[in-house]
Design a binder for these strands. Sequence first.
DNA 1: ACCCAAGTGGTACCTAGGTAGCTGTTCTTG
DNA 2: CAAGAACAGCTACCTAGGTACCACTTGGGT
Lengths: 235, 235
Amino acid sequence: MTPDNNHYPRYLLALKQSAFLKDSSPESLARLLNLMTAEHWRAKTFKNSMDVASTFHFIVSGRLKVFKSNPDTGREHTVFVLSKGDVFDVLSLLDTDPNDVYWEALDKLEVLKISMDQMRLWINEYPVMHKAILYYLGQRMQQLMSIATDVTLHSTLVRLAALLLKNINGETRKLELINNLPNDEIAGLIGTTRSVVSRHIQELKRCGAISVSRRKINVKNLEILLSIAEEKHIP
Amino acid sequence: MTPDNNHYPRYLLALKQSAFLKDSSPESLARLLNLMTAEHWRAKTFKNSMDVASTFHFIVSGRLKVFKSNPDTGREHTVFVLSKGDVFDVLSLLDTDPNDVYWEALDKLEVLKISMDQMRLWINEYPVMHKAILYYLGQRMQQLMSIATDVTLHSTLVRLAALLLKNINGETRKLELINNLPNDEIAGLIGTTRSVVSRHIQELKRCGAISVSRRKINVKNLEILLSIAEEKHIP
DNA sequence: ACCCAAGTGGTACCTAGGTAGCTGTTCTTG
DNA sequence: CAAGAACAGCTACCTAGGTACCACTTGGGT
């Protein structure tokens, strides 16, 4: 992409605001952007790990879920929801064996892409990136540990309450990242099925913790939600 | 530790054989060992993340489980079993916020320890280490993704069969890493409870997949185990 | 404006697996 | 070597949550 592109300034700003690239100089980011190509994915675009192994992606806008599934039962478990400023796939960047993970756009997705090899070269020119990647992976690791143990250690209701709390904006008290998701997707996030989520949403409505309009959950009472998430609330 | 220590050669060999330190030169490893202190933990020694945050450990012999638990119910879920050549805690090394994970020795444990700050300094002198850590984290990440989704995507029987297959030595056909573990610990590894594991072990015995003597599981029939793990076997 | 697909709410049923408890056996430690 | 702790096996029971429906609502596209 050349700097005369209509969206160039917006893309550059997105790179600058990314947690993954936060330690990089403006010059190095401009160089990176020059090597990148913009691409739009429509909602529900599906990719497997093979598809994304040879190209590195940076998300400018929209959300992408990373999930595993059991083809026999059709069950899915979402591991991460990536959004603006996130990149994928970091693991392919490290030459690790491909992992059988799936990727699906939750919204219209705007990404910048670059070949994996070019990205590796770029990184090697900026040693500070190694630290940034380490930090990024460390954080993801922590999240993953919680996800891994949540299912066995907590009930679905507790996990749902915890999910809402985790994604609430402290200021506006509105849901972020997981707003406007259908029950199906929420189910994938806590490792259960749609009908169970629907059931629990009714429960949370009944006790006044939340209110619901189509595809939209509003948190009404943080205290109740907290006590449920901490397993102190006996419904 | 000085080179005149009785165990010095054995410790140095352990460092050399570690996957984590595999790219380091013999000289750098000797320097590292000089900064380290040996320590012995008896079986069932318990540590929380605070205890291990300020000291970096290298395992010379024995096994250590890394787990999360729900104090209310007493349930535990083991995330990793670390053994010879493994190090902990890598996450503390990266300055990430402490994660509430617990550590417990499964056997008598022989570790080499070094202060976290000294370890950071040592790493910064050998840039090749950054790549090694990245690779190590990447691998762990993959494992974690599977652990995270296994519980929702597969039944306990399938997970048990998969656990056995994953830890079988191709040559000797004997279990490694998880041999001699009580049912309790096996339960923690697949995110269930002792009695369920015991139940499934009886099932696997009955269909001829394994045989059991006290604290010891012998795999008798790989094919059956495989078909169970792939959910093709209807018991 | 209309239609159809996507999404939600609700019900009834069922089973995997968690809980509790007891027994006999085998290590281990004083 | 004796006592008790740790461990495996087994039974009976119970419930969280998964499966399978159907009916109603909504909103985007033609």
